[in-house]
Design a binder for these strands. Structure first.
Lengths: 115, 115
DNA sequence: ATCGTAATTGCGAAAATGCGCAATTGCATT
DNA sequence: AATGCAATTGCGCATTTTCGCAATTACGAT
């Protein structure tokens, strides 16, 4: 293969690695959405949103379609949603883990009277 | 929550978005691995590997443990592997899709004689 | 044909990322 | 304590990424 798989993976993750792009993909999970709706939902300048949408388009993660005067974007495939779900699982697990650790630390502290 | 979940997601993906780091995580899936082994497997300078390992450590994706004179790294949790698997599925699907498209285009070309 | 709204693109400045060198730390051996 | 190996850190430089402004394209309405 001309491009090693791990390079492609890294690129995929890199493209996902921006808050606005994540936000867009999350919103598109609820169905096709116009740029105006995205703009209303995501705190970002129109020009910035366009650039991020272009990134997602170039990597074929979303599709764009004209509808009269407005552009409607949609997820290109269901697999992206799986990635987002996996990330959410990992993060929630990590956060609850931290909370548990914090609880334990606080309990220990209370017991031993560490300053 | 002080940090929105989508920010955390973006950060997670951003941290995964480098070939060396992907490579490290893939190697660690086969079990704990010393830095020397990683160096032998990954074409990268020692200093560069250290920096990428530091990134993975800071984000708690891997754990480091001294073993005599060498450092042994391991995956911090099983969830990272799920993310990598999801990415692989997405990419293979995308690549086979492209191949199918290419085949169709070639077939059409042969039929219509497009130059 | 002109105007107005929607969305995108080009471009330069600012910020973040990655890289390699030199210096440092940690541990084992002598 | 001095030497050697393993790994990391500090730091400057080059590259990449991101952002906002101005200009442009695309379409519908007048």
């Amino acid at each position: 293969m001309s491009v090693p798989l791990y390079e492609a993976k890294a690129e995929l993750f890199r493209l996902l690695g921006h808050p606005v792009r994540i936000r867009v993909l999350e919103l598109l999970q609820d169905g096709p959405t116009s740029v105006r709706e995205l703009l209303a939902a995501i705190e970002v300048e129109p020009t910035g949103l366009s650039q991020h949408l272009a990134v997602l388009r170039r990597s074929s993660m979303v599709t764009a379609q004209r509808e009269g005067n407005t552009m409607v974007y949609a997820l290109a495939g269901g697999r992206v949603a799986e990635l987002l779900r996996a990330a959410r699982v990992l993060l929630t697990e990590k956060l609850t883990g931290q909370n548990e650790l914090l609880s334990e630390l606080l309990a220990d502290e209370a017991n031993s009277g560490v300053s």
